[in-house]
C-alpha cells in the first residue's frame, strides 16, 4: 500500500504547475507576522491560523480529489497514508511519516521533515512553545477531511522551531459523519 501512494504522490506532483517555494515561504511568513501584529494574544494567532487553514482545506480537497483520482478510503489508516504520501506531496512537495497509531486506529501522528512553511524561520524565545507557526496545516487537514465526512481534531505536538527535533501533528478521528455522505457513496 505504501509504495503505491508514494508513486501516486510523485506522479501528481510532477504534473502540477509549480512555482518557486521561496515566494510561498516568505508570503506565509508575512501572514504570520501580520497576525501577530493584529492580535495581541498568541493563542488567538494560533486559532486564526487554524481557521484560515480550515477555509483552505474545504476548498483544497476538491482539487486533491480531481487531480489524484483517489476514491473513498476503506479505513482511517488508509486515509492517513493518503494524506501523508499524496496530499502533502501534491501540495507541499514533501512526504510525511505516519506513526504512533493508538490501539483503536483512531489516532495517529504525522511527522513532517523539511516543512517548507518554516524554511529560514527562527522563532524568538518568547514565542517558542507558544506560537504554533505552521498551525495552518492543522486547519487544512481538518477542513479537507470534513468535506469527505470525517470529523477530526488536529494539534501540533512537536515543532522544530521550538527546539524539538521534528515537526509532528496529532490527528484524532472524532466522528464519521455518515448522514452527510453523498448519495450512492455509502
Amino acid at each position: 500500500m505504501n509504495k503505491k501512494y508514494d508513486k501516486l504522490g510523485s506522479d501528481v506532483f510532477n504534473k502540477v504547475e509549480k512555482i518557486n517555494s521561496e515566494l510561498f515561504t516568505l508570503t506565509y511568513g508575512a501572514l504570520v507576522t501580520q497576525l501577530i501584529k493584529d492580535y495581541e494574544d498568541i493563542e488567538q494567532v494560533n486559532i486564526k491560523l487554524e481557521q484560515m487553514g480550515y477555509n483552505i482545506g474545504i476548498r483544497l480537497i476538491e482539487e486533491f480529489l480531481a487531480k489524484s483520482g483517489i476514491g473513498r478510503c476503506t479505513d482511517f489508516t488508509e486515509t492517513a497514508e493518503v494524506i501523508a504520501k499524496v496530499g502533502f506531496k501534491m501540495f507541499l512537495g514533501v512526504t510525511c511519516q505516519v506513526t504512533d497509531w493508538d490501539t483503536e486506529k483512531k489516532e495517529f501522528h504525522l511527522i513532517i521533515d523539511d516543512n517548507p512553511l518554516s524554511d529560514f524561520v527562527e522563532l524568538p524565545d518568547h514565542l517558542k512553545h507558544k506560537l504554533y507557526y505552521s498551525n495552518i496545516l492543522c486547519g487544512v487537514i481538518r477542513g479537507a477531511l470534513e468535506m469527505v465526512q470525517m470529523k477530526v481534531k488536529c494539534t501540533f505536538v512537536k515543532c522544530s522551531l521550538s527546539d524539538d527535533n521534528t515537526c509532528s501533528i496529532k490527528v484524532v478521528l472524532e466522528e464519521v459523519l455518515s448522514d452527510l455522505v453523498p448519495v450512492g457513496y455509502d
Binding site: F13, V16, E17, K18, I19, N20, S21, E22, L23, F24, T27, Y28, L31, I56, R59, L60, E63, M90, F91, L92, G93, P116, I136
Partner: peptide
C-alpha cells in the same frame, strides 16, 4: 525547490 502553484494560490 518548488511547490505547487495551487498552494500559493490558496494561501494568497
Amino acid at each position: 525547490s518548488e511547490i505547487n502553484l495551487s498552494s500559493f494560490a490558496f494561501l494568497f
